[in-house]
Amino acid sequence: MALPEQDAATVADYPEVEDNSNEKKRQLKNKIFKGIFFGAVLFSLLMLLILLVRIFTQGIGFLNWEFMTSFASRNADEAGIQAAIVGTFWMMVVTAPVAFVLGVGTAVYLEEYAPTNKFTALIQMNISNLAGVPSIVFGLLGLTIFVRELSMGRSVLAGGLTMALLILPIIVVASQEAIRSVPSEMREASFGMGATKWQTMFRIIFPAALPGILTGNILALSRAIGETAPLIMIGALTYIAFLPDNVFSQFTVMPIQIFNWTSRPQEEFHFIAAAGIIVLLAMLLLMNSIAVWIRNKFQQRF
């Protein structure tokens, strides 16, 4: 705080130092831009805070064990989210392994095996584009292929596979980045000892890239948990009074259940929707925390 005074004193002591007016202008500009950027951060934080406060004040009263273990109901007092929670888990059981195997497999091929030619570049470009395709389009794809063409019906399997397709581009890109971050010296060292490509991949590259790959997968899955549009498209139900017991069961998931409650006219349903959102947010926060924890704990520094 004493610094500006000191500066002034220095200028006074050495009059030959010119008072450059441009200097002040630049300092001011510097401060203004800092203010703008901080304001941008503040705005989004404020919005998040308002959202959280609103949801918590509305929903916390309805959040209890009965809510967690009841089925949906016409009566707001008896309505619960159990079927949606279990439905979400079932969907993840299908989505996670399918998306992991296909996504990581694609990433490994593109990074380690694919020749550098125009065809590879085309695939690469389209994967990046796929990440930007609206989720409802994936819903349409799932409806056409899985529900109708492969006659899976409105099942967990059809929904899970659709979600797997939706998050595939995210997983591919994240896994590619993780694989690329393993230094080429590791490859050289392994190849230099007579290891085959597969041995190098399996024993060196993959273990080193795994934390990054897992982080990408978990973040992609948490996106899948929050998605609603594609599942509405393939016709996941909004009212079921039973738990799915295999991959061919009909099902519902949390965001669909929440959407359904908020679209009802009675105000009580809006409160239990808020309670549902709290459960969903808690789940997403948990998954993202796990992702961050894995990244911090296992990421190798080369």
């Binding site: 010296e185 590791m186 050289e188 060292a189 290891a195």
Partner: peptide, 19 residues
């Protein structure tokens, strides 16, 4: 090439042990 590299070891400019 694997047979060749088994017979011919290599040490690099920057030490590159595996993690």
């Amino acid at each position: 090439v694997e047979k060749l590299r088994t017979k011919v070891g290599m040490v690099f400019q920057k030490p590159n042990p595996f993690p």
